[in-house]
Nucleic acid binder design. Sequence first.
DNA 1: CAGCGCTTGTGACCGCGTGCACAAGCGCGG
DNA 2: CCGCGCTTGTGCACGCGGTCACAAGCGCTG
Lengths: 226, 226
Amino acid sequence: MPRREEPDIPEARLIPEATVARLPLYYRALLEIADQSIGTVSSEQLAELAGVNAAKVRKDLSHLGSYGTRGVGYDVEHLVGEVSRELGLTRDWPVAILGLGNLGRALANYRGFGARGFRIVALVDADPDKVGQAVGDLTIEPVEALSSIVAQRRVAIGVIATPAPAAQAVADRLVAAGVASILNFAPTVVVVPPEVTLRKVDLATELQILSFYQQHRRRVPDRARV
Amino acid sequence: MPRREEPDIPEARLIPEATVARLPLYYRALLEIADQSIGTVSSEQLAELAGVNAAKVRKDLSHLGSYGTRGVGYDVEHLVGEVSRELGLTRDWPVAILGLGNLGRALANYRGFGARGFRIVALVDADPDKVGQAVGDLTIEPVEALSSIVAQRRVAIGVIATPAPAAQAVADRLVAAGVASILNFAPTVVVVPPEVTLRKVDLATELQILSFYQQHRRRVPDRARV
DNA sequence: CAGCGCTTGTGACCGCGTGCACAAGCGCGG
DNA sequence: CCGCGCTTGTGCACGCGGTCACAAGCGCTG
Ligand SMILES: NC(=O)c1ccc[n+]([C@@H]2O[C@H](COP(=O)([O-])OP(=O)(O)OC[C@H]3O[C@@H](n4cnc5c(N)ncnc54)[C@H](O)[C@@H]3O)[C@@H](O)[C@H]2O)c1
Ligand SMILES: NC(=O)c1ccc[n+]([C@@H]2O[C@H](COP(=O)([O-])OP(=O)(O)OC[C@H]3O[C@@H](n4cnc5c(N)ncnc54)[C@H](O)[C@@H]3O)[C@@H](O)[C@H]2O)c1
């Protein structure tokens, strides 16, 4: 079990980690529903669209407060607002991409990226040949400028797309510059101070997990499915 | 709790899902150790490299069998063999990439992809303008050819990198063609039959989770960290 | 060959997450 | 205004996963 530290802090409304991980699913489903000008939605319908269980939807949403109406369902517009607020999507989150190789460029060119408040404000690479190149609306800048870039553009999230050996050093620079949220695509363990949130996306791991289940050819547990 | 079906099947040695998800971490750490010509490794050292707890390492590895020696540790070479065997990395896994846009091309050009038995054998796109284009050593083929491609090249894993609206249709085609393992990068819920393993990588979800913790500025639980 | 130090393997405990099932409660129709 | 149907919100029980702590066991040394 994850050790919950800071037991003294009251921490008003704490939302379970598992719920946090599902909020984006609900958010996406809610936007689809809102597009169809549907006013209210039941937990059953939302569960269907988000690919989860209805009871879980209700319990998850109850952590945000009681915004549903019994016998009717949830007001879609209101719920979208509550979920976005909880996820912090009402704010603007400046993002920096570190490492502009195959993956970094794909991320930089990805339109859907900036769709919900995540705005790419800097592209940083260590390769002098790459510095100065334009990618979309931005120009690649040197790593030495990272610290001032983060400060001036209020970078909140750093996305690491460098080769694995460089990842820790890049993460250290990000942390030193004051970035408190990092998404790491490099296949290596990166250590950050406890106050920094680090998440990872690891293609090799995903493939190997698929490989395991394929080899053992047994049904993969529900949780691992969408 | 995930519903475990097939209670009648004996299922000799069943490895917990959480353990399976960590095996790739151990595998990566073991390769690093093997590179340094180190003969044995303790659970403590392995835990350090994999970024997990030593007790967890021991319990995880005990599920593969008792390959350690008390007072000494684990034989690195032997353990690499056991973990690869368990993960199915001793086999060759032909992979097809569906959708050759920004992301699909990045994946197709990714060298580290084929490093451990995962070999890209087909690139498929629905856009007639893209069909026939060369990407690396391969040529983009039309979706209509998918079924015969899967059969002839023994495609085991399908990677979906199409826009979200096309993802379900592509998944359906893959399943119909006999692919039993799918990795989905499109930000949408994809439904597959229970015998098919589906995993997803969702950038928007990851960013939104980071956004949540950043906004609530509290320490993220250990499990979410690397 | 006995003792010692080190490391594994695991028993025990505990909390989180999940799903069931139902009471509470809202709105509508008669 | 009453009752009925529908949906939420949640109490409860259960199992998985995580951690601790220690007994078991291996090898080395004297
Ligand atoms: N390409 C993919 O599809 C893919 C998929 C999954 C994971 N990954 C991982 O993502 C990372 C990037 O992959 P890629 O294919 O884009 O690699 P790449 O070699 O094409 O690009 C890496 C980039 O990082 C830059 N770089 C190196 N050191 C740096 C530093 N210290 N600071 C800033 N920039 C630095 C390089 O100059 C280069 O531009 C790798 O760790 C890879 O394993 C890639
Ligand atoms: N680009 C990124 O960095 C990135 C990151 C995370 C997630 N994604 C997701 O990955 C997917 C692809 O992103 P992208 O930026 O490469 O998009 P893209 O538009 O550049 O490429 C999509 C490709 O899919 C092809 N396609 C469309 N319908 C198809 C079908 N039915 N069968 C086969 N191919 C089809 C298109 O012709 C196109 O080549 C999207 O769902 C996106 O949300 C992209």
